[in-house]
């Protein structure tokens, strides 16, 4: 029987963000925006959803006077991502 795919990850933008963060130690909001081609508003909403689920942490600081947002995947996020990929393999086979 096929495992259900995590609905939080099974969306293009959130999956894109999680994949980027899986390959990096941390990434800035602007980097994620550039790589995913998302709008700032949409990306911000999706990051909040991932953060509320405990999949990522969002650190807000300042660079000079400009706000700086840096995201990092959590252990829970890594586990969820790995489980998602495992479940995905079932669909591919």
């Amino acid at each position: 029987m096929l495992k259900e795919l995590d609905p939080l990850l099974h969306s293009q933008l959130r999956l894109g963000v999680m994949s980027l963060l899986m390959g990096a130690e941390s990434a800035e909001f602007t980097f994620l925006k550039e790589k995913t081609n998302a709008t700032a508003g949409n990306l911000s909403v999706q990051l909040d959803k991932l953060s509320e689920a405990g999949y990522i942490t969002i650190e807000k600081t300042f660079r000079g006077k400009k706000p700086l947002t840096r995201c990092r995947i959590t252990r829970k996020g890594i586990k969820a991502f790995e489980e998602y990929v495992q479940a995905l393999k079932g669909y591919i086979k």
């Binding site: 099974h10 969306s11 999956l15 994949s19 995913t36 081609n37 998302a38 709008t39 990929v85």
Partner: peptide, 21 residues
């Protein structure tokens, strides 16, 4: 990546993951 609830096929998901990583 404009939409947030668009359904992905399994293959699309894998391709996206590979490309982003």
């Amino acid at each position: 990546m404009e939409t947030n609830d668009d359904r992905l096929s399994a293959q699309q998901s894998l391709t996206l993951i590979e490309s982003m990583i």
